[in-house]
């Protein structure tokens, strides 16, 4: 029998593990994202691994009239420009990359104080985003917009994992103390553990792109 982590998609396979899933202790957690045992679902033997797609047809979505034209915030402009800087450097357009970085840094300096604060503020936004992502995935599937479906699938996983880590930290801050913190430099997947995974469980880049976040001494 196989069981899949509902947060990061990690598969626990009774056939290859020493201990059957049912016999694992109650405090056992997913080795990839730290989700508890209760977050695992048994997999149908027929089912292919990987995320399940949303329903074939999206429900009718009513949009605020001005949502599409909503002005971009300073933070968004900064992210657009830092990403364009990356894009330029991949094309070896180094001068252009530096100019986009300059604009990104300007907007980073001018990012306004957030509406929410603290760990609770981050959790509030995470919960809002998870709802929007659910709707967005259906919308992207309906439009056959594979790029949007891809980014929503990745960022939903990264967001769920971040949520599970932040909630665990709030319940017991010591779980990070004895180990390391990593962030995948491609998708933003956060990993708490001694060594990073060989391949990012979310976007599948090799582990050398999962970077360690240092701790001040």
């Amino acid at each position: 029998m196989k069981y899949r982590c509902g947060v990061c998609g990690y598969i626990y396979d009774d056939a290859v593990e020493a201990v059957p899933f049912d016999e694992l202790p109650d405090d056992w957690v997913c080795p990839v994202c730290g989700e508890g045992k209760e977050g695992f679902e048994p997999m149908d033997e027929e089912e292919a691994p990987g995320p399940t797609d949303g329903p074939a047809t999206a429900p009718e979505i009513e949009w605020e009239e001005d949502e599409g034209l909503r002005e971009l915030s300073a933070g968004q402009l900064s992210a657009i420009c830092s990403n364009l800087a990356r894009g330029c450097s991949k094309q070896h357009l180094d001068k252009e990359s530096a100019l986009f970085t300059e604009i990104a840094e300007y907007y980073e300096r001018h990012s306004v104080k957030a509406q929410y604060e603290g760990i609770d503020g981050i959790l509030t936004l995470i919960n809002k985003d998870l709802g929007t992502m659910e709707v967005g995935k259906m919308q992207a599937a309906e439009l056959s917009d594979r790029g949007s479906l891809r980014v929503l699938t990745w960022s939903e996983k990264v967001t769920l994992i971040a949520k599970s880590i932040v909630e665990r930290y709030r319940a017991d801050p010591s779980f990070i103390e004895r180990t390391n913190v990593y962030v995948c430099d491609i998708c933003g997947f956060i990993y708490i553990g001694d060594e990073p995974p060989e391949i990012c469980p979310v976007c599948k880049v090799p582990g050398f792109l999962i970077l360690k976040i240092g701790r001040k001494v």
């Binding site: 971009l72 968004q76 503020g121 985003d129 992502m133 980014v151």
Partner: peptide
């Protein structure tokens, strides 16, 4: 997508 990226940018500030 913009609704989500706005919140991610805000989370970065927080």
């Amino acid at each position: 997508l913009n609704l989500i990226s706005a919140n991610k940018a805000q989370s970065e500030v927080i």
